[in-house]
Amino acid sequence: MLRLENFTKRYLTGDLAVNNVTLEIPTGQVVALIGPSGAGKSTLIRCINRLVEPTSGAAILDDINLTVLGSSALRKARRHMGMIFQEYALVERLSVMENVLSGRLGYVGFWRSWFRKFPQSDIDEAFRLMERVGIADMADKRADALSGGQRQRVGIARALIQNPKLLLVDEPTASLDPKTARQIMRLITELCAERGLAAIVNIHDVALAQMYVERVIGLRTGEVVFDGPPEDLTPEVLTDIYGEEDWEATIEEVEENGEEIAEAVA
């Protein structure tokens, strides 16, 4: 569904942030992108929807090469890629409802959006999504009045109301406490499963990633150095991605958590 071919981003400073990445993500697959800070995870997903312009290579979403689109075609293509951000990136002074509806901007004309006269179907969908992600009755609260977890739920609703095929998720849990972080990760993966969405999730917390995703891609200095199921993340692999460290604790923790989840499910 999404295919990256020799995808490369070189900044004007000469830094190679994304180096010749080739990979394919099928419909409905949730992929965690791990790697040390500065490995190019953020740049990679921003190059896909071209918030950052890639230098060379191709990103093909359902047979459309995103890298060659003109500005109007790019806007249309962006509607199919929902994005969720690290610091939520909500518009602080807008209400929850306006933030959620801003996900429909690619579908409605300027004057409709200016007067906040969105089609009834969009309003219905916004309310439905707010209920689904757990922020019902908050429609008219200002975004800056919400807690971190609630804000990220608004961010998720804003991405989903775009009716995307692909979610680009940039460190969704980095500013959340451990419990909220798990809830948010669970919500994202559940929603992807419900709607058959593919997702690329940048994440620092290796243990958390292992709990919720089916595939992990390891990035180091812009290159893919690991691509496989979470069980294959051995201390050797983590050392290859991040450098020397005692990884046993991280992995043990995952195993315990795995049991916990198994119990909860049973």
Binding site: N49, L51, R75, K76, A77, R78, R79, M81, M83, F85, A89, L90, V91, L94, E98, S102, G103, R104, L105, G106, Y107, F110, S113, W114, G155, R158, Q162, L168
Partner: peptide, 16 residues
């Protein structure tokens, strides 16, 4: 950036 990522036009981007 978040508003731009939704596929908003320039005017919508400024407005939101």
């Amino acid at each position: 950036e978040a508003v731009r990522a939704t596929g908003a036009s320039w005017m919508q981007w400024i407005n939101y």
